[in-house]
Design a protein around this nucleic acid. Structure first.
Lengths: 183, 183
DNA sequence: CCCATATGAGACGTCGATGTCTCACGCTGG
DNA sequence: CCAGCGTGAGACATCGACGTCTCATATGGG
């Protein structure tokens, strides 16, 4: 009887990931509840998106923790990060585009925290000599987001296999398209 | 007196690139015409988006032609491609997300043509030994789109300098984040 | 100069989504 | 057993955007 708000959120995330313009009614149906009940738990679409944003931030934070960005080489940390963040990629892409609509408003500070942690990882790689220094950590972070979105889209549209997700992103992000000199 | 439809289209492209949810009225105001006149030239928002899609495809095609993808090394061709396609990146990003809403409908075949030409470039690079073969041309193409969108977003939000646009994309796409061995 | 044509301004109806409300039902705990 | 709470279903008003229409105006060509 008692509705599980977390279950509703995760269902909504899964749906909106596929169809970003889904109606409140569709979200409710997908979660197996009525529109009225959905509205009892989330004041409106805005509140729902905000809650999804918090969920996404929390999952990202958890992924960052699980990836132990401070351990081992930066490359290894990037691989762990991509692996850990893969399940959130779809939700991330949705929130990414959704955030662009909040033009005037200030964005949730949680994103800054996440950006900073990822940027710090790339900076660590630069300081250790692993990563090149002509690409800023901010750009590498943004590029990672873009590649995550592209890969998620490829998998979702059936143009790519889910098993290749991590490999595609990590290899391109770290190694690039050029063939290495096997001297 | 006579309204220039092309000017309207380009103004709409510039506006929708920044605010993808802009109203028909906002689009009209931005183009310096009334909503009625806008509606006389484009039957509805749908028709406007379709026209923008055609414009985007045409500009892409022109960029691909200008980049002479068949000449020189594949790397050089990629650099020329990114340089030529930079002005269209914003519009591309808009159409990219807009297309995801046309879930059921078939997409404009023009995109396939463009995808194929870019994929062919990456395949050429693989055959010549320039590019690694464990990343599919389809993924490299999709990744290029993602990086274009990320870079356009960075520049638009002021987090990156426009002059770095090409460098950021090309260097990451081709070389990756890893520092090269300067043996 | 005059008329045809295109435009601007605005009113109007429509439609979809939203938010709110009421009422009846079923489950659960006392 | 019964009272209370949460839920489902649906009605209702609102709101924003859209598409259509009319009319006045100005502009440009004959």
């Amino acid at each position: 009887m008692a509705v599980d708000p977390d279950h509703v959120l995760r269902t909504a995330a899964a749906l909106l990931t596929r169809k970003s313009t889904a109606t409140m009614d569709e979200v409710a149906r997908a979660a197996g509840i009525s529109r009225a009940t959905l509205h009892r738990h989330f004041a409106g679409r805005d509140a729902l998106v905000r809650a999804l944003e918090s969920l996404g931030i929390e999952e990202c934070r958890a992924a960052l923790d699980a990836a132990r960005l401070d351990e081992g080489t930066a490359s290894e940390a990037v691989r762990r990060l991509v692996a850990a963040i893969e399940p959130v990629a779809g939700l991330l892409a949705f929130l990414y585009t959704e955030n662009q609509l909040f033009e005037g408003e200030e964005q949730n500070p949680g994103w800054t925290l996440i950006d900073d942690r990822i940027s710090a990882l790339f900076r660590r790689g630069q300081l250790s000599g692993e990563f090149r220094i002509d690409l800023t950590p901010a750009w590498l972070t943004e590029a990672l987001y873009g590649l995550l979105a592209s890969a998620a889209w490829m998998v979702h549209s059936g143009k790519g296999a889910p098993k290749d997700f991590q490999h595609m992103i990590v290899e391109l992000l770290l190694g690039g398209a050029l063939r290495r000199e096997e001297s």
